[in-house]
Design a protein around this nucleic acid. Structure first.
Length: 568
RNA sequence: UCCGGGGUCGUUCAAUGGUAGGACAUCGGUUUUUGGUGCCGUCUAUAGGGGUUCGAAUCCUCUCCCCGGAACCA
């Protein structure tokens, strides 16, 4: 599958060229025999978010492009943080994004092989068991620019380490009492190489291996070897693992492995303004009830974006566009939204909905023989961008709801909508001229009055006169009630939580507004759950998967009137 | 403080010794039965100093700034 070519991909950025070049160079050099294999290795300790989306597009996309495979591999080396709930969600989310993962692999399936290799290193004098506690080991590691000091157990006999390692595995020692360390160099300028820990004793219940193991490999000891076992050629990860690469290579070099070994390459992670992509912080938002859950439409999780109506295709196009690089960067959320709009504009049906209803009464509207207002049906195009979507008939009568914003008794300059004396178009229906309004004692406008021009059926004036505004409406007698949630940025600051590193400092208290009194046209009830429609002149709204007639605003339309207001 | 990675329009990604370009954002125009969309245009950048070269964002050098690294996390 290609992630770069799609009719709605919009502007094409550099994409993943830097990775392609890397692969091509290896292919030309004959490394890996021209084979390409990648992997996507999430730890099942949270839900996938938009940051993962980029990694997924690169890992799966590049493999597919070069005729290789990309495995989903759960990096489940820590029993304390992982859960089967998350593991299942990862497959769902990958599939939704457009990369069904096939049979997943598990780092935990390699525990036995890893253990055998650990004995191999011990036997060759390249690893030893340390009896010191974590604090001591950490202190001995030294500091930046300061060399470390060697553990007193560093040179214990091979046989003794081997015996201790076996007893560690057998569960003879308490959690945290012993650790297996690689014997590398306590003076190394790269701290990762100062005798890193390979195994720790931990009696947590593992979601797959249960209580079979009490020792668990660390990330570094598991990752490269897992790649090697699977035959991975290009192991792509984020920049913070840059200094781990030396260790990744060291393990592989000192193990009895045939052929070319996998190579790790690091790229910048995806960050966005106005949101966070830290699993820990997202988990806090959920745990402390700031949001309704991992699939809250304000969350940058794949589930949240999906619920909010972000099309997977648009997310893929975005990831492809921003591409990969080694420079740390934080993209503006507006760029993502522009991809969402681009896609939605093309695919979304148009429907009319009134969020804050105000009655508009057509005073010269005719009545039928029984004295009731005539009801007409007007043809409306479903999607001007795609004539294939056809037309529908929308009921129209004497009283319609219009947007409260669409009437002003005293209109400021450049306000083109309804105001006494002004003629506007009710979309696909008629030209109407405002004659006044009725107000409550407190001055609130109760209803607006107008007259219509019967000669303008469909919205065109036979004499060719123009109006400056075309407004949406819903017939009051036929309107359906709906609930609409408007979403703003979860964080008001450009760079959330940057100052203190905590997630709640810049939370936007108005990130969600619930409108329970919306009036929508009857056809909206027929849109399937999860589909996104454009509410004419208002933006894109996703029909909630669980609740009928509840809509989430995906993104708004570009609103020049709002900009004009801002400037005044 | 040591090691590593970075520094190009407001933002982000290109240009790999030969005209600094695109997108988003901004601003303006135009089309339009959505103040949407489309189309056209505008605007703004090579962190700083020195060097190599006919020619430097690119190579060398010094300085400055940013990010990552001292879990028995990943």
């Amino acid at each position: 599958m290609s992630t770069t070519e799609s009719p709605s991909a919009g502007p094409t950025g550099v994409g993943f060229d830097i990775v392609r070049d890397l692969v091509r160079a290896d292919n030309e050099a004959g490394t890996f025999g021209g084979r390409v294999q990648t992997r996507f290795p999430p730890e099942p300790n949270g839900y996938l978010h938009v940051g993962h989306a980029k990694a997924i597009c690169v890992d799966f996309g590049i493999a597919a492009e070069f005729g290789g495979v990309c495995n989903l591999r759960y990096d489940d080396t820590n029993p304390d943080t992982e859960d089967i709930e998350f593991a299942g969600s990862i497959i769902d989310d990958l599939t939704w994004l457009g990369f069904p993962p096939g049979t997943p692999l598990y780092a935990s399936d390699y525990f036995e092989q890893l253990y055998l290799w650990a004995e191999h290193l011990v036997t060759n004098g390249l690893a030893y068991v340390d009896d010191q506690d974590g604090e001591t080991i950490s202190a001995q590691r030294g500091g930046y620019g300061k060399p470390g000091t060697e553990s007193p157990h560093r040179d214990r006999p091979v046989a003794e380490s081997l015996d201790l390692l076996r007893r560690m595995r057998n569960g003879e020692f308490a959690d945290g009492s012993h650790v297996l360390r690689a014997k590398i160099d306590m003076q190394h300028e790269n701290m990762q190489l100062r005798d890193p820990v390979m195994y720790r004793i931990r009696r947590g219940h593992h979601w797959r291996t249960g209580d079979e193991w009490v020792i668990y490999p660390t990330y570094d000891w598991a990752h490269g070897q897992s790649d090697a076992i699977e035959g991975v050629t290009h192991s792509l990860c984020t920049l913070e693992f840059d200094s781990h690469r030396a260790l990744y290579d060291w393990y592989l070099e000192h193990l009895p492995l045939p052929g070319d070994q996998p190579r790790q390459t690091e790229f910048a992670r995806l960050e966005l303004t106005h949101t966070i992509t830290s699993k820990r912080r997202l988990a806090r938002l959920v745990a402390e009830g700031v949001v309704d859950g991992w699939d809250d439409p304000r969350m940058p999780t794949l589930r949240g974006l999906r619920r909010r109506g972000y099309p997977a295709e648009a997310i893929r196009a975005f990831c492809s566009y921003i591409g990969v690089a080694r420079t740390n960067s934080r993209h503006s959320i507006e760029l993502l939204e522009s991809f969402i709009r681009r896609q939605l504009n093309e695919q979304s049906l148009r429907r009319m909905a009134v969020l804050r209803p105000l009655e508009l009464v057509i005073t010269n509207w005719p009545v039928d023989a029984g004295g009731n207002p005539v009801v007409e049906f007007h043809e409306v195009v479903n999607n001007p961008e795609n004539p294939g979507d056809g037309v529908r008939m929308v009921p129209f009568s004497k009283v319609v709801y219009i947007e409260r914003d669409d009437f002003m008794e005293v209109a400021p300059p450049k306000y083109f909508r309804l105001t006494p004396g002004r003629e506007v178009r009710l979309r696909s229906a008629y030209l109407v001229t405002c004659t006044g309004c009725v107000k409550d004692a407190d001055g609130t406008v109760r209803e607006v009055h107008c007259t219509y021009d019967p000669a303008t059926f469909g919205g065109n004036a036979p004499d060719g006169r123009k109006v400056k505004s075309t407004m949406h409406w819903v017939s009051a007698d036929h309107a359906v009630d709906a609930t609409v949630a408007l979403y703003d940025r979860l964080f008001s600051a450009e760079v959330p939580g940057e100052a203190t590193g905590e997630p709640f400092d810049d939370l936007n208290p108005d990130s969600r507004e619930l409108l329970t009194d919306c009036k929508v046209e009857p056809a909206l009830a027929d849109t399937p759950a999860g589909s996104v429609v454009q509410f004419e002149r208002l933006g894109y709204f996703a029909h909630d998967p669980d609740t009928p007639m509840r809509f989430h605003r995906t993104v708004g339309l570009r609103d020049e009137w709002a900009n004009i207001q801002k400037r005044n």
